[in-house]
Simulated assay, not measured.
Amino acid sequence: MQSWQMQTAKARFSELVKRAVENGPQEITLHGQAKAVVVSRELFDRLSGNERSLVDFMRASPLAGHDEVEFGRNRSLPREITL
């Protein structure tokens, strides 16, 4: 992983992003300490589980295909609002 000092990362941000896409994660340091990592959107989606669409997520639900799903409702009185 290539390391970039904060000032250099700011000055050459477009190159930093390009390298993250082409070469993988890029580390950013501040005062010699690692503070952040820039990754491509593709890698971020893969690591965070965001690859699936909402439709795929809903189809994978344990409730998918059940037409008679009933959700309970709290029938208690609303709270009083005091001003």
Rank of each mutant, 00 (worst) to 15 (best):
V21A: 06
V69H: 00
E27R: 12
P62W: 03
P62E: 03
R41N: 14
R59Y: 04
N50R: 10
D56M: 03
D67Q: 13
P78E: 11
P78M: 09
E68W: 10
V55L: 09
L30K: 15
S48E: 08
S14A: 15
L63G: 02
R73Y: 14
G72Y: 13
R52I: 02
R46G: 04
L16S: 07
K35V: 15
Q26H: 02
V21Y: 03
L54V: 08
I28L: 10
H31F: 14
L16M: 06
S40M: 00
T29V: 11
N23C: 12
E22D: 08
R52C: 04
S76T: 15
K18W: 13
V21F: 04
R46T: 02
S76A: 12
V21D: 04
F71D: 06
R73P: 06
D56Y: 03
A64Q: 07
S76E: 15
R19I: 03
H66A: 11
A34M: 11
L63V: 08
V21C: 07
E68T: 08
I28D: 00
L30E: 13
P25K: 12
R41Y: 11
R41F: 11
G32K: 01
S53D: 01
K35G: 08
L54F: 05
A36C: 09
G32W: 04
N74V: 09
F13P: 11
L47R: 09
G72E: 10
V69E: 03
V69F: 00
H31K: 14
D45S: 11
P25H: 07
V17W: 02
V21T: 06
F44C: 03
A34W: 06
E42A: 13
V55P: 00
S48F: 01
H31V: 14
R41S: 15
P62N: 01
P78Y: 12
H66F: 08
V38S: 04
V37M: 10
F57S: 12
G32C: 01
H31E: 14
E51K: 09
G49W: 00
E22R: 00
P62D: 02
L43T: 05
F71Q: 08
